[in-house]
């Protein structure tokens, strides 16, 4: 495929290992994972419980450190960096979407979305403006000053996705984003993610649900800490993969 050489590599994993326990209890959650993720891919990571997919996601998100192996994010080795440095990378390059949304319940929707910008040192007015702009893309603008508890599960997850997106991350990591949602809300959320993908965002999603793989551009099956299969799904509609700048613009365009 021609695409492979034209798109920049976002993530490169080499012989990545994660060991838990020592001695007899030693157990490799990740046992030598090699993976290259290009910009704009929508990857669904599948596999049974305990296959290491969440561990992989945590390491990709710099919430966990690999025991062994290399992790290059945007061409830079990151596994050796200090935890403060990791925090900065998380705030600038990574967006998280969680199964249970993880919105801060006592602050409004817009403040939740603006939260990652706080850690970039952005001033409050600018933060809220950015957050408002992102929320507009999710058609949640009129709910900006609602509290998370006043929204439905699907809306909460869309707010969470907006939050993951607000700092223009290189990658969006989603851990079972529809795990707590009914099928209707799941569909809406997946459409939203799929839309992000079409706009050129890189998404890595861990899921149990085989139906969701239809939204992905690449499906990785994991088993016992290793990648068992790696399938690229042919793009259905070429025109939709074109980069459409998101409301707030992608990195490098600002």
């Amino acid at each position: 495929m021609v695409k492979k050489h034209t798109k920049p590599i976002v993530i490169k994993l080499k012989e990545l290992k994660k060991r838990y326990g020592i001695g007899n209890a030693e157990h490799y959650a990740l046992d030598g994972v090699d993976l290259i993720i290009e910009k704009g891919e929508f990857i669904a990571v599948m596999g049974p419980s305990g296959c290491g997919k969440t561990t992989l996601l945590n390491i990709l998100g710099l919430l966990d450190r690999p025991t062994d192996g290399d992790y290059l994010l945007d061409g830079k080795a990151v596994e050796e960096l200090s935890s403060a440095h990791h925090a900065r990378i998380r705030s600038e390059q990574i967006g998280f979407v969680f199964q249970n949304f993880n919105l801060v319940p006592r602050i409004s929707v817009i403040e939740n979305v603006a939260l990652p910008l706080t850690y970039k040192g952005m001033r409050k007015m600018k933060r809220l403006k950015e957050a408002s702009r992102v929320l507009k893309n999710f058609h949640l603008q009129e709910r900006e000053y609602y509290m998370p508890a006043q929204l439905s599960g699907g809306q909460n997850q869309r707010v969470a996705i907006a939050r993951a997106l607000v700092n223009n991350p290189s990658i969006i990591l989603a851990d079972e984003p529809t795990g707590n949602l009914d099928s209707r809300a799941s569909h809406i959320v997946m459409e939203e993610l799929s839309d992000l993908h079409r706009r050129g965002n890189t998404i890595i999603m861990v899921t149990h649900n085989p139906k969701l793989t239809t939204y992905a551009s690449r499906v990785i099956h994991m088993l016992d800490g290793k990648i068992a299969s790696d399938t690229k799904i042919p793009v259905k509609d070429e025109s939709k993969t074109e980069k459409i700048p998101l409301g707030h613009g992608r990195k490098g365009k600002e």
Binding site: L63, A87, R90, S91, G95, N102
Partner: peptide, 16 residues
């Protein structure tokens, strides 16, 4: 606890 985890995930350092 969960809020702390979340804040760390979205970029808060230990000092924050």
């Amino acid at each position: 606890t969960r809020e702390i985890g979340l804040r760390k995930a979205i970029g808060a350092s230990n000092a924050h």
